[in-house]
Design a protein around this nucleic acid. Structure first.
Lengths: 257, 257
DNA sequence: GCTAAACTACATACAACGTACAAGGTAATA
DNA sequence: TATTACCTTGTACGTTGTATGTAGTTTAGC
């Protein structure tokens, strides 16, 4: 009755255990359930992904969802893996490692902006899924030819992806500033009064940056700043001898389509 | 009736609006409520912070909690700000900026490991609180004398703090591997079968790193790797002309006491 | 001293959630 | 045909945040 998550994750694999040979066919596939949940999350956020809502969007009863998924937590894992599986892979080809790292970062940014609910997911079991593993494998190739050890290669990729995750979170937040704008307006007056002359540095910098309060711009600035730091930081390790660490002409804008 | 969050955050400030002049005194202070919630979160995780649990830990009725706090979400913001307020500030003094950056990163790491529930909080309104602002102000000084613009100074601090956050999340995860170990044991067999020879790079690196599955060690490695990358990356910007970017003698271990 | 205002405290209640359980239906296998 | 294995669903329980209404308590103003 309790289907192991690992088999659910790999349900499309040829060796996956056959289900439903005997009884009646499921009216909907597990993929449909996961897809529907993703659609809900994309549209209305992770909180909208309730068992009942998923069920209704597929015209089935709430409890029927549990035919496909053991629990809501498992469903979230399946959603994440599906998102990882269907995310466009960055072209790595024979570009320089710097370009490849940028592409990995940007594709992760694009993924997380397309599915902001991924930011709320911290379940490690996602790492067991085929989509996640395929993504991991692909992105590891960004460091081909850099001479990094396996351990450092993993650490470097983690470094890049974690940065992308933080950047995405910042952008998603500033994208939701609709609500926060109100709070900010109400709070700005009292806050100024409370602050007075204290924390002058924070006040000056915070005003310039804006991000720490409300600003659409600074998340983009932080991204460009950060990606340059990431590349430069890796550069110090990878080609510490040969090149000078200068940031030159990297078009830093768009996400992969 | 509805107390603005900003006034709750600054409730200890001299200019805060006086409450309860008229009616009976609160049996417990707002600080006690927040403190109790923090204690609960520290001990049993964020999910244990229910209004009812907080109330019970203070021997009051659930609805009485709402005398001090407007909603659970507001309570979480107060908790975060209180944690920021009471976190030990890294000594910055007249150390080099590299050392100061390390200290900022390490103190953030220590804070997040002491209060892992902070990792689940994404409410921007925390930025309005006195503890958060004081922390921000203090940490901005890490870049004194580096010649960074205000905008870059903010971006640099964000870069460092975001890194610390990711690193803390990794360590917290590996610290909870008790449960995951089971899942891993059950899944390892089937996973190996599914994988076969595919994704050889991921398999090799994943095995070496271990983090992507289950390993206590690699989070520490990732931290040391990352902090060096962070410093080197900033170095390329800050003293790009003068020094060579070599990582030498930085004792990378303990958090501030 | 008295009344009204401002406040605390609490019991009750509701809607939404995840999901356990059991009953009933259906299709392939023996 | 009987059995087995599965799907589907209604009902129900426990937990959550919190709206609402009521009763009690303290102080300000007269």
């Amino acid at each position: 009755m309790a289907k192991p998550l690992i088999d659910l994750l790999w349900r499309d694999h040829p060796d996956a255990p056959v289900r439903g040979a005997r009884g009646p066919q499921s009216r909907r596939s597990t993929g449909e359930v996961v897809g529907s949940a993703i659609a809900l999350a994309d549209a209305e956020g992770m909180d909208a992904v309730t068992i009942r809502a998923v069920a209704e969007s597929l015209s089935m009863s709430p409890m029927s969802v549990y035919t496909h998924v053991n629990s809501r937590d498992d469903l979230l894992v399946l959603m994440a893996d599906a998102a990882h599986a269907s995310a466009p892979r960055p072209r790595l080809g024979r570009a320089s490692w710097r370009t490849r790292v940028r592409r990995v970062a940007e594709s992760n940014l694009a993924l997380l902006r397309a599915h902001p609910w991924l930011l709320h997911l911290t379940d490690d079991r996602v790492a067991l899924g085929p989509g996640t593993i395929a993504k991991y494998d692909h992105e590891l190739h960004a460091f081909d030819g850099t001479g990094l050890s396996d351990l450092d290669r993993d650490a470097a990729l983690t470094f890049v992806i974690d940065f992308a995750r933080s950047g995405a979170a910042a952008m998603v937040r500033t994208g939701q500033r609709g609500e926060f704008a109100e709070v900010w307006q109400e709070s700005a007056g009292p806050l100024g009064r409370y602050l007075g002359d204290s924390y002058s540095l924070a006040q000056r910098v915070g005003q310039a940056a804006g991000e720490h309060m409300a600003a659409p711009y600074s998340a983009e600035h932080a991204w460009e700043f950060g990606i340059q730091r990431v590349v430069a930081g890796l550069s110090a390790l990878i080609d510490s001898a040969t090149e000078q660490t200068v940031q030159t002409t990297h078009s830093a804008s768009s996400a992969p389509k």
